[in-house]
Design a protein around this nucleic acid. Sequence first.
DNA 1: ATGGCGAGAGGATCTCGA
Length: 270
Amino acid sequence: MGSAPTYIATWNVNSVRSRLQQVLAWLGVNPHIDLLCLQETKVADDQFPVTAFAERGYWVYTYGQKAYNGVAMVSKYPLEDVKAGFSAVLPEMAQLDDQKRLLSAKLHGVRVVNLYVPNGGAIASEKYHYKLAWLACLTQYLAVLRQQEKDILLCGDFNVALTDLDIHDPTGCETSIMASPAERTALERVLNLGFVDIFRQQNPEGGHYSWWDYRGGSFRRNLGWRIDYHFPSVELAQRVTECQIDVTPRRHPQPSDHAPVIIGLANLRP
DNA sequence: ATGGCGAGAGGATCTCGA
């Protein structure tokens, strides 16, 4: 009876131009992916390789800048109600849009929020405080969206390992960037608005990661962190058919240091 | 305590990421 699930992926590609052939190849072997949310595109919008995707039938939505940051959405279908940056919802937060890290749009009735949370540098540094302020602003942003829409998918590179299970070796991680208590609390406040860590719900055991340092053979030894997530709203979580990390591209030569994460959503509006 | 690897900018060797 029901139509096929809608498949949405999130992938920090660490430069879309450097990774272009790998991203196209991955879409080629994963033709079921309806929407791919990209982070760290590292390119201004007028330099984004739109044609390469358009030639393959995808619509492309970009929100980027030169050299740093940048997010984009690559979709089989036209997206609706595209909102770029915090200021589309919170005009008073326009200063946090200097760094292009947030792009949201609707597909098949679902509001997809694609984000790239700041790295944070060192604990207590200026960048660290920027990260916490950014996450606090995200909480405000989502509180507004939550009043407007029930079916929201929050996805991207969050640069926070929610629990010790998300780190290959959590020893001393409370003083480490991406795992400090303040970062975890800031992300928990987001989830407490009514979002679900669906991958962890389906995989209560550790050992599953989405990022591995380029250095020291981390991937070969599976010394990773899980920092890339799909967080469906509690209402949408009922319709999740699967959530998987695809480590295949991380094995390729010159890979991104992140792996894509895929979610399936059943019974969406066509 | 530090660097380790990789990308971008710019044209040698920085900054940044996580």
